[in-house]
Amino acid sequence: MANRKSLDLIVLLVISMLIIAASAAIYYAMLAQTTATVAVASVYFKTGGDSTGILTLGDNDTYASLSLDAYPNVTLYYDQAVNLTATADKEVQLRHVSINPGDGDLSVSNFTSVVFRLIEADGTEVGTLTYTTSGDDWTEPTYTGYVPILNGEEMTIKVEIKAAAGANTGVSTTIVIAVDVK
């Protein structure tokens, strides 16, 4: 009788410990919170050789706005539209976010192509985002794929833009691309 009670107690103790440990682990997991700390961006924009008059950098150089021209039937090159630099060894990629006006808009056919090229300091091209038109529709790229950027290295983003022959003046398009960093 006493042995049976002891056995019961041992079994109950083991089960109890398991239940309490598992419950505590779940509660702790639910309690766990994410802490976000503001830090300096490890990759940021810099003015390039052709940035004068076309580039506006945002606060902390983490945002860049380019105001580019396009000429009909001529490809205009901005060899160093904007530069990218890093304060640590990272990997970066260019990624398409949005384009406006979008597919189906009559003004789209005024453009032929917009190309963003990611180029290393030695001139090696490491990624390309190519936007082309087909009638009133855009053919958008997705992303370039990650490429390494070393601490202190400066990459440049070259932009090639071409409007269609006979394009109307004053027509504009807004392209938003992101620089992903990992």
């Binding site: 239940i19 309490i20 419950s23 505590a24 779940i26 509660y27 639910m30 309690l31």
Partner: peptide, 10 residues
């Protein structure tokens, strides 16, 4: 968290 009462009950 409300689950604390659950833990206490357990």
């Amino acid at each position: 968290l409300p689950e604390f009462f659950l833990f206490l009950g357990i």
